[in-house]
Amino acid sequence: MNALLCPITAVWNSSIGKKLLVALTGLALVLFLAGHLIGNLLIYLGAEAFDEYAKALHEALRGGGVWIARIGLLVCLVIHVAATISLTRANRAASPKYQHEAVIQATKSSRIMIWSGLTILAFVIFHLLHFTVRVDSELAEIAKASPHKMVIVGFSNGLVVLFYLIAMTLLCSHLSHGVASMFQTLGFRSRKAAPLIAFLSKGYTLVIWLGFCSIPIAIYFFHFGC
């Protein structure tokens, strides 16, 4: 096999290699979420600041910047999903059930990773159609004038807000196991570092949950910006 395919199959065909792909793509997505949150929180500074930020994003590298980011993120997401589905299937095939099941100390979040992940996937598709592709022509018109207004109008629909909040909660369940787990997969965890890693992981998850949920809650329940 050639010099490129060989390392790729060596990584994909080994359990640790495939998990490394999950951890590295997970890390990229975790960093993206932090950046995305900071951008979104600009909404609290007013329409002008938010619209300017949206404009700057779309004009970076003469419009190429946003596409580089989109393609990079899409590639990460595809690798993450393909690898985790493949790992989950292999895990199920490897482990027959006990008649009397017991859990010693594994967390609930760690046991529903595939379900929290698939909910995130459904959410991401919806979210892109809603705010990026803008399949709703009315919302698309509004967005052209002001992305800020688009967010306010977008979050005045109760069902959208409900789905958003559920998805964020499951995302945070995913992160509460995933962020700490990533350190172990990448080989950076030790008994000594474990409390610090747990703190980082829980802290990050909490900030993500509070930050992302605050926006639809402020708009829908407290009529922020309306």
Binding site: S15, K19, L87, A93, A94, R111
Partner: peptide, 18 residues
Amino acid sequence: MVRQMDAEGFGNCTNQYE
């Protein structure tokens, strides 16, 4: 050793520490 472990049909670690 890791390759043999994979070949034997053991599952993959999900860092739950059971």
